[in-house]
Design a protein around this nucleic acid. Sequence first.
DNA 1: ATACACGTTGACGTAACGTCAATGTCAACA
DNA 2: TGTTGACATTGACGTTACGTCAACGTGTAT
Lengths: 255, 255
Amino acid sequence: MEYSINKLSQLAGVSTRTLRYYDEIGLLEPKRISSSGYRIYGKEELKLLQHILLYKELGFELLTIKQIITDPHFDKRRALLSHREKLLEQKKQIDALIQNVNKTLDSLERRTEMADTERFEGFKKEKLLENEKRYGKEICDKYGEDTVEKANKKFMNLTEEEFKEQEQLAQDIIANLKEAFKTDDPSSELAQKCAEMHKKWLLYFWDQYTPEMHANLAKMYVEDERFTQYYDKEQPGLAKFLYEAIQIYTNQKRT
Amino acid sequence: MEYSINKLSQLAGVSTRTLRYYDEIGLLEPKRISSSGYRIYGKEELKLLQHILLYKELGFELLTIKQIITDPHFDKRRALLSHREKLLEQKKQIDALIQNVNKTLDSLERRTEMADTERFEGFKKEKLLENEKRYGKEICDKYGEDTVEKANKKFMNLTEEEFKEQEQLAQDIIANLKEAFKTDDPSSELAQKCAEMHKKWLLYFWDQYTPEMHANLAKMYVEDERFTQYYDKEQPGLAKFLYEAIQIYTNQKRT
DNA sequence: ATACACGTTGACGTAACGTCAATGTCAACA
DNA sequence: TGTTGACATTGACGTTACGTCAACGTGTAT
């Protein structure tokens, strides 16, 4: 029994375009070509095609399928195992995305449903959520969940006034830092004042302070681009400058 | 503060190609273009870009993101909800794929680990698995799990000899059917003999037989391409011919 | 002779960029 | 002032697995 491209496509339930494509990439070639150039397939090709479709249903790429069916020594078990790993990985990613979407939905609902009196509390919660989404794991890993918990609690206890002070202070630090940056000397008086202001700012969120912790945080300012960016968007190099200023500042404190 | 394309890309952690692409599709255009044609971005663009990346992390398509950020009346909640649905759907699909891969792995292991004495049992199990993978749900839905269970059990009880008989019979049916097909008359003697042979064949798997069940199955031969294909691969139209022969055969039986 | 179904190759489009290539611009240094 | 090197531009191809034309050739029935 021989089949034209149309018949084979109907038997197997794929489009003729698909068969032509498989021919093109050498995945499934017709048994022979008729004098007028028509593709002619045989029973073998039908079987092969069914094999191909089986693997396709498992989500394999055509290139991989080609290897599987052309090389009979190909280790199918290994291929299946690694493929399963890939699928599990994908599943994990999708789960993470779903969680992420859920969080975003949460914060959205909070914002719309919040009464005016609760607005500030909701606002802070949202900031926390945002923060968690951006840095979540890393911070916990570095400082321990306990420390993070405490910081969050302190943050939630801020009054609206304190919050505004803190914001203002953050702005002042940047302004002074920009000035100090011109001197290009992180040990300059102004730069050291910035480091001190930065410490004061931290105490809005931390309930204990050690020079080590301060120096450690500063290191993150240059190592993690998400922090770097906060200062560098005002002036490239500002994050590193602050880092150096804080190193000098905390070294003096420790001696 | 103004940023060149390179600075912005570093601040936000994306490639310059990405920024050019976003410009190309009108997702994020620079604040202005310098006299020499350079793209120049401002702080606003940085913020917008961060928003874009936020949505991108959630797995939104760029086209959707464009709508979200350009139209402030866009219903973000609805977008998030429907997006979550999409993700859940994807997750379900991946789960199904994983199950499928697991089954395939199972049947593979059975084949390799099987001792010679168990070969035939393993072989039958594999056939069943294969079958289940191909038709699983539909058959159960049509006949009820109970009937399917019984049929599977009967199948597993076949001796090697019976199995071979059954295979031979299936081949004979096709051969006769091809002959009968030439007459183009499903009520012809030969065609009716085929219907009877088909009944006999069925009794290898079914422990009860009614003309209704037989006629019903025949209907599936023309309605479900996976069955059609089994006969049509020998001769287009064969499945339908058998269907008609069986209809006539069972109608006579019922009157 | 004509109609009509069926076949062919070739090309573009998809999503979101990566990766060249060819060429222009800018600041700094010898 | 010429040159170097970093940075910018546009343009184009490649990626995956086909869908969807277009332009054109074949086979068969009327």
